[in-house]
């Protein structure tokens, strides 16, 4: 009896969940967005997601093998990187570009730092940044969703072929840029963007694979919040700060700047707020730190969208805030209940 008696420090019981379970919940949370992606972009969505997940997992396995480390695929974090990378590239991206992005995301974004828990930047965003820098054209070519009747007249004046389409964010960017144009006939009004709210909500619009359907992302985000997979601080801070920043622009000049609701639902704002910025490894530990991080992500995104050259800013703002996460943690030390102890 009791030959296998166990000795360990207390506590002797634990909550029955694990890192893998948390990651599995994130994957389930991404499922509605995947369904929406398949609905709007058909086979491309399936192909890109499968390629990215497979290559991410393979890269992680190979990295572990070369470093003689135990296989870490079981924690499912490589799969999440794959899914998020696939969701944040244009549907028309060729498969070989997706492979390059996935390899870079895992190998340089994660494994060189020592694997899960040690990476400074969000691996999926590293992969996407690499693709943006390398294949700028491909990363800004947007497919028309399969659900749009291609014989219908397009909103875009230029693209009558209806193979590609400007994203709503590109329209809002045009409106900002055309502020300086003297010729009234060439001016683009922000109301074009504001009229797209219904399509933004359901996802029938050009954009990255998994970020077009706001409703799917919101469902996934609520699932993550309800299961306690993420805490509310970062999503709330991102969305609130983006709302405030875009409101300022909207109230200053509503013909040039699109409405706050438009900005919250367009581009990578929702997938960023719920799935990318909330990556625990690359975001701060404390609540106060999470607020600062979230406000930084939301604020920087809006700064890039409204003032910068790019029409979308989620990727850069997440990467920038990732880089100062250690600093935030350093300055947001929590004080114990009852004040600082006299050491």
């Amino acid at each position: 009896m009791l030959q296998n008696i166990k000795i360990s420090p207390s506590p002797h019981i634990s909550k029955h969940y694990s890192t893998s379970l948390i990651m599995l919940n994130v994957l389930i949370g991404l499922l509605p967005a995947f369904i929406a992606a398949v609905w709007y972009f058909r086979a491309r969505a399936v192909m890109l997601t499968l390629v990215c997940v497979a290559v991410c997992c393979l890269t992680e396995w190979l990295c572990n093998l070369t470093r003689s480390k135990p296989n870490s695929l079981g924690d499912l974090s490589a799969a999440i990187t794959g899914v998020i990378l696939a969701f944040s590239v244009p549907p028309a991206l060729p498969w070989w570009a997706a492979i390059i992005g996935s390899v870079f995301a895992i190998a340089v974004g994660k494994m060189v730092f020592g694997g899960l828990g040690a990476n400074v930047f969000n691996p999926a965003m590293i992969g996407r940044a690499f693709l943006t820098a390398s294949f700028g054209m491909m990363m800004t070519t947007w497919t028309v969703p399969a659900t749009i009747d291609k014989n219908m007249p397009e909103i875009s004046v230029k693209n009558t072929s209806a193979i590609t389409q400007a994203t709503p964010l590109a329209w809002s960017k045009q409106a900002i840029k055309s502020k300086k144009i003297e010729d009234v006939s060439k001016k683009v009004d922000a109301s074009i963007a504001n009229n797209m709210l219904k399509d933004l909500f359901f996802g029938q619009r050009g954009g990255c694979l998994g970020e077009t359907s706001s409703v799917a992302l919101i469902i996934g985000g609520i699932y993550l919040l309800l299961t306690g997979t993420i805490s509310i601080h970062i999503p709330l801070a991102v969305l609130l700060s983006a709302f405030v920043a875009s409101s300022i622009g909207y109230f200053m000049d509503s013909t040039a700047y699109a409405s706050p609701v438009f900005h919250l639902m367009s581009g990578g704002m929702l997938i960023g707020a719920f799935f990318i910025a909330t990556d625990p490894v690359t975001s701060p530990l404390t609540k106060k730190g999470m607020w600062i991080f979230g406000i930084g992500v939301g604020g920087l995104t809006m700064l890039i969208r409204m003032v910068g050259e790019y029409s979308e800013g989620m990727m850069f703002s997440v990467l920038l805030m990732n880089s100062i996460t250690p600093l935030i943690d350093k300055f947001c030390k929590i004080i114990p209940a009852g004040g600082k102890p006299n050491v």
Binding site: S18, T19, I22, D75, S77, G115, L116, G117, A118, S231, P280, V281, S283, P284, L285, T286, K287, M290, I334
Partner: peptide, 12 residues
């Protein structure tokens, strides 16, 4: 034991 994913659950 697996790697700390800095989720902050211990702090919460």
């Amino acid at each position: 034991e697996t790697a700390c994913i800095r989720c902050g659950r211990c702090i919460a």
